[in-house]
Structure formats: structure tokens, C-alpha cells
Design a protein around this nucleic acid. Structure first.
Lengths: 132, 132
DNA sequence: CTATGTGCAAAGTGTTTGCAAATTT
DNA sequence: AAATTTGCAAACACTTTGCACATAG
């Protein structure tokens, strides 16, 4: 497999906008939601463009993709953190690294670690408060 | 939304077979792989049946579903454990709970915890050994 | 000018579903 | 006999892609 010389990326308005939209929220939106927001600025932007740019932004390490079931969600927060998903309202919350402590002993078994992803499910404080 | 009285499940050969197949491997297979195995016993079983039964087995708590990107993978191991995915060969390994220690302090914030899922990526010992 | 990116629509992929016939209880 | 399950094929939801035109560098 020959690694293609990395492509020279342009700074298109579409790409900038998509990144901006993603940076402006902590809601871990889907491609479709981003598309709807983007249409407010560029009414005829296409969903394909949104997907293509999300892929590029991810390749460039500017965003991450959360694979929550069938639908991908995207996150412009790229520093170390984890996620909590509320089973009632579906919201995804960030978990700060200091709120969770993980120690693993895998390297000694010959495994190299690249990423550690923690996903917690449960019921969020809002939903816990509002129900009996 | 009225919760329908739980359905009385039958013990179909198809369902039993699918569970057996899943129990016989630690490879965290996809629905399609299970389908191919099942066809060896029931040549005209349909993929739809495989999906329907996987969903039922999951509802009954007999298997779990791993959502690794687009494609679901299934696991008949339902006791507490985590997963490691090798970026080179794509294999998914089980991580024993004693190999990883997690402490979180989320309950105090009003969040109730239901499941804690840890997914680690990296390079497995096999791939680390075989390459330079 | 030229390679990269866009919009559009069509195609792809994994999964779900409607239906009539078959099967379990 | 009644309700669940099956196989089949069509439908789905999300994502990717081919193409001709547009645009950034």
C-alpha cells in the first residue's frame, strides 16, 4: 500500500464554517445537524460537502468522531476527555479527565496503547431531577 | 408510550444456533459473519433472521453489542470486561477487568451510572512482534 | 493555470421491516 | 388454534462517490 503524498488542502469557506459550527457547540452534533446550521450561512451547501469536510477535519486532527450507535457524532474538543450519554434524554456530556482515573497494565503484555476511550451511560442530573 | 406486555419467546432452532455460534468464538463477529456460519447448518437462513435474533438475544441480556464504527459486532461474553482493538490487524481483544482500574466520581454530581465501557486502540502483541 | 473542492444525484452499506407461509407452544 | 418466527425482498438511514463545474493558490 503506497501512501499517497499528502494533499495540499485549500481553505474553503465551507470547511472553515463547518469547523466554526462545531467549535461553537458542546452538543456533539451529527453531520445532519451541522448541515442544517451550515445552510443558514450557505443555503445551497450540500450534505456531501459536510461529510467530506468532516472527514478531512478528522484526518487533520482538528476534530474527533464519536461513534455512538449508527450515527456518527462530531466533537471539536480534541483534548483528553471522555463521554457520558444519558439514556433518557440522549444528551452527551463531557467527562473531565480529572473526574475519572484509569490505570491499565497492558503495555507489559506487548500491547502498545494509542487511544483510551471511555463511554459511560446512565441518567444525567437533569433527568434525575425532573423525574420521580 | 404504552409498554407492551413482554412477548413470549419461542425456542427456535435459528435462535439457538445463533447464540451457540456466538458462544463458540471470542472474535466479536459481525452479523454477516454469524450469518455465514449459520448457513452451514441452515443453508437458507436469512440475514434478516440473524439480525432479528441478535436483537432479541441482546434484549434478553444474553449477548452484548459492540458498536465499532459503522458495523456492529456481537459478544456472548456478558460479564464485566473491556475491549482492545488493534489498528493493524483489526482484531478485538478482551481486556480483563483486573487489567484496568477505573475510578470515577460522577454520582456525586447527580449522575447515575449504568454502564462503563472502555475501548482501547493500539497495536496488539502479535502485530508488534511481527513487524520491525 | 491546475489541483482541490463543490453541488448534485445516484450508488453503497449495514440494518430493518411488511408480508404470507411455517413453526413452536 | 394462536401467537411468534421465518425467508424473502423491498425499504431504510446514514454515508460515500462520480461527475462537470467552480475556486483557491
Amino acid at each position: 500500500m503506497i501512501k499517497k503524498d499528502s494533499i495540499k488542502r485549500r481553505n474553503t469557506y465551507q470547511r472553515q464554517l463547518i469547523l466554526e459550527i462545531l467549535k461553537s457547540t458542546t452538543a456533539h452534533p451529527t453531520a445532519d445537524w451541522i448541515y442544517e446550521q451550515a445552510r443558514k450561512e450557505i443555503p445551497n451547501i450540500s450534505l456531501g460537502t459536510v461529510y467530506r469536510n468532516l472527514k478531512i477535519l478528522k484526518e487533520e486532527g482538528l476534530i474527533i468522531e464519536l461513534t455512538d450507535g449508527k450515527q456518527s457524532r462530531f466533537d471539536a474538543r480534541i483534548d483528553n476527555h471522555y463521554h457520558f450519554k444519558c439514556e433518557k434524554c440522549g444528551s452527551i456530556y463531557d467527562i473531565e479527565p480529572e473526574d475519572i482515573e484509569i490505570n491499565h497494565s497492558l503495555e507489559f503484555k506487548g500491547f502498545s496503547i494509542d487511544t483510551v476511550d471511555v463511554n459511560i451511560t446512565g441518567v444525567c442530573s437533569k433527568c434525575n431531577g425532573e423525574n420521580a
